[in-house]
């Protein structure tokens, strides 16, 4: 830990002022408002509210649709996280191994990082387009009529596929940089000890990658829950209906479309608690990493 070097009364205050004031107005105030309005029942015109305690929360947990969306969010998050991590790791291991064309592969596998989620969504729409989208035709070939936006499972599949595509590059980048920081000496020692490259990977390399993998696990869960908003909004064409959606999208639908301020705020608070738990978990991990590396 670095010792503080300057002691000046007004200087640090002045330096912190822009950041802290922005945070208070645009972070703490809205977060507090969310918490507050989750305990109120707003009239449809937003003029007055009645204090209803935890009613908004109870209503949510008894709402079959909310529970169904929670379940979908869980499946969605698990699928997106697992497959994008697995693909990212696979490509990183191979890109780390090959000698020829390594930098070309690297570029080709990471540029999608810069593609905005709604742009990914529009690419998805064109691939899954009803009737003659390329993937739609592929499904038709196997005898399944793929109808995005109508069939619940088809839509869910398309959302998951596009979200995975968008997330592979970031996992690839982090895994590759993790692999490249494994010391030569360890690799060479492992080479001498063990001929089987897959055993070498699972017993030596993979444990060394564990901190990266944990960090990415949290990043991916956060991505799947929040950053996929653009993918979902575009692929559902802003017409949620009975389609699968994530909890974050539901907050938006209820708050901005349904005008259910209390319910939407209660959902926000539930998400806040979820993220809070995730982040505390992550912070503890980072602290551990700082100690040991």
């Amino acid at each position: 830990m670095k010792r503080a070097s300057f002691s000046n009364l007004w200087m640090p205050v002045l330096l912190l002022l822009p950041q802290v004031s922005i945070i208070f107005v645009f972070f703490y105030w809205p977060a507090f408002e969310a918490l507050k309005s989750s305990f109120y029942l707003q009239d449809p015109f937003g003029f007055s509210g009645t204090f209803v305690g935890l009613d908004n929360y109870f209503t949510l947990f008894q709402n079959a649709e909310y529970l169904r969306i929670s379940l979908f969010t869980l499946v969605f998050t698990v699928c997106v996280t697992f497959f994008s991590l697995a693909l990212g790791l696979l490509f990183a291991v191979k890109a780390d191994k090959v000698i020829r064309g390594a930098s070309t592969y690297k570029t080709l596998l990471m540029w999608v990082y810069a593609v905005a989620p709604p742009v990914a969504g529009i690419l998805g729409v064109s691939l899954f387009y009803q009737g003659h989208g390329l993937i739609t035709q592929l499904f038709a070939f196997f005898g399944h009529e793929f109808v995005i936006g109508v069939n619940y499972y088809d839509t869910g599949f398309a959302l998951i596929a596009v979200s995975i595509w968008k997330q592979v590059p970031i996992n690839f980048i982090f895994f590759l940089s993790g692999l490249q920081s494994v010391p030569r000496s360890i690799r060479e020692a492992a080479m001498i000890d063990n001929r089987s490259s897959s055993r070498r990977f699972w017993t030596i390399t993979f444990p060394l990658l564990a901190p990266t993998a944990f960090f990415l696990l949290i990043t991916n869960i956060t991505y799947a829950m929040f950053d996929t908003f653009g993918v979902i909004d575009v692929m559902l064409r802003s017409e949620p209906g009975n389609n699968p959606m994530t909890l974050t999208y539901k907050v938006y639908v209820d708050g901005f479309r349904g005008g259910d301020l209390g319910g939407s705020s209660a959902q926000s608070v539930i998400l806040m608690i979820l993220v809070l738990a995730l982040t505390i978990f992550q912070f503890r991990l980072i602290e551990r990493r700082i100690h040991y590396t």
Partner: peptide, 21 residues
Amino acid sequence: IIFTTLLLPLEVRILPSYEVV
């Protein structure tokens, strides 16, 4: 005060943020 903001992405406090702005 500053690092608590890492905890909550804009998406989860979107409606009140909109109203404040």
